[in-house]
Structure formats: structure tokens, C-alpha cells
Amino acid sequence: MLKLLRFNSRIWFFLGFLGCVFLLSMGAYFQFVQGLDPCPLCISQRIAILLTGLVFLSAALHNPGQTGVTAYAISGAVTALCGAAISTRHVWIQHLPADKVPECGPGLEYVLQNFPLFETVKLMLSGTGDCAKVDWTLLGFSMPEWTLLAFVMLATLSLLQIWNYKGSDDR
């Protein structure tokens, strides 16, 4: 059964890239079609998805040997797990009691224009009261919870390529 799933790691990395494109497309759909404005943590998660997708695309285009696959797999897992950490913080903020939620900060555009880059990054990663609002759910899970699941799946897919490559000789 597992031999059926042992495609070339290049194909799996490309499928991971397509998954990232899908996630970014859904974010754009919710923002531009449904009118849901992303909070700073949502934007940070999108950046992590973009970086993970770029690692996957690079691996698929490069088609490296085992050492390269291992390096790409670890890089993809690290970027996905960084995104998972951001998603975890977002989920945590959404589950805080109302009196413990951080205050809403200024808009991201204002912060980008008026604050140094370090302060902007700090705001994007710490989250604001805007991040506590749940605008959308599917099967009882909020968007950050689904994004956390996606990051865990992307990290797993990435790390499995180390094992997948080792078995490519006996195909």
C-alpha cells in the first residue's frame, strides 16, 4: 500500500506547492470576495505559507539528490512549523476570555508607514484584538485552526520526503 504513495519526491514537493497556492488563493478569496480583512497574524500566516510554497517549488524545480531532498525537506518543515507556531498563537488569542484579549492596534498600513520594520514585525507576530474575532468557521473550526492543521500537514509532507527518497531505488 505504501509503495503506491511513493511517488518521486519532486512530485510530492510540487503537490505541496500546489497546496500552498490553494491556501493563498483561499485567503485572497476571503479577503477580496467575501470582504474579510486579514489581521496581522493572518498576514503573518500567509507569509509563512508563501515561504513554505517557495521552498517546495524550489525543491520540485531543482530535483536534487538525497542530500538536497533532505535539505529542502528540513527547510520546508521549518517554514511550515514557524507558520504553525503563528497559527497556534492566533488560536490561543481567539480562545482567550474577552477581558484578556490584547487591545486592537492601528491598521497594518499605518504601522508600515509610521513605524520601523522591527516594530511592524513585532506587531504582526504578537497579534492584536482584531485577531481574536472569529469571522468564519467550517465544521466548528476557525480559519486559524484550519491553517494550523494545514501547516502540520505541510511539515509532515515535507519531512516524509526524506523517507520517500531513500526508498526511490527499489521502485
Rank of each mutant, 00 (worst) to 15 (best):
G107V: 03
L36F: 13
Q31V: 06
S87I: 05
S142D: 07
S87P: 02
L157P: 11
L4I: 05
K100Q: 15
V33D: 10
N114H: 14
Y72V: 00
G19W: 06
N8Q: 13
A132E: 15
P40Q: 03
Q31P: 04
F118T: 11
L159I: 00
W136I: 08
M26L: 08
M143Y: 10
K166C: 06
D169N: 04
L148D: 06
G76D: 07
V101P: 05
S9A: 11
I43E: 08
L2K: 14
L5C: 13
D135E: 15
P144L: 08
G19I: 11
F151L: 12
V69W: 12
F17V: 03
L149Y: 09
V69P: 04
A98Q: 10
E103P: 10
S9W: 11
V111I: 11
M26V: 05
Y29T: 01
L41V: 01
S75P: 01
T128E: 15
L108V: 12
K166Y: 14
S75E: 02
N8K: 07
P40K: 01
S58V: 05
E109Q: 11
P64Q: 04
R171A: 06
G35I: 05
L81D: 02
A150F: 10
L18C: 12
M1A: 11
F13C: 00
L61S: 03
G127S: 00
R10A: 10
L108N: 15
G83Q: 04
D130Q: 13
Q34G: 11
L112I: 06
C20N: 15
C104K: 09
Y110P: 01
T137F: 13
D170L: 14
P64C: 01
E109W: 12
W12D: 10
G167A: 14
K133A: 09
V78D: 00
Q34P: 06
L15T: 13
W12V: 15
L154K: 05
Q31R: 12
A85S: 13
L23M: 04
S87D: 09
G27L: 03
T70H: 01
C39D: 15
S58A: 15
Q34F: 09
L41A: 00
M124P: 03
G76T: 04
E145V: 10
G129S: 06
A71W: 05
R10S: 08
L149H: 02
L154C: 09
G53T: 05
Y110S: 03
L23Y: 06
K133E: 15
M153T: 14
A80E: 02
S25G: 13
C104V: 14
M1Y: 14
S58F: 12
G65V: 04
A71P: 00
E109C: 03
G27H: 10
C39P: 13
R6C: 08
I162M: 00
L123S: 05
V21F: 13
Y72M: 00
F56H: 10
L149Q: 02
L36P: 02
A98H: 09
E119Y: 13
A150H: 02
L112N: 10
D170V: 10
T52G: 07
E109V: 07
K133T: 07
V78T: 01
L160P: 02
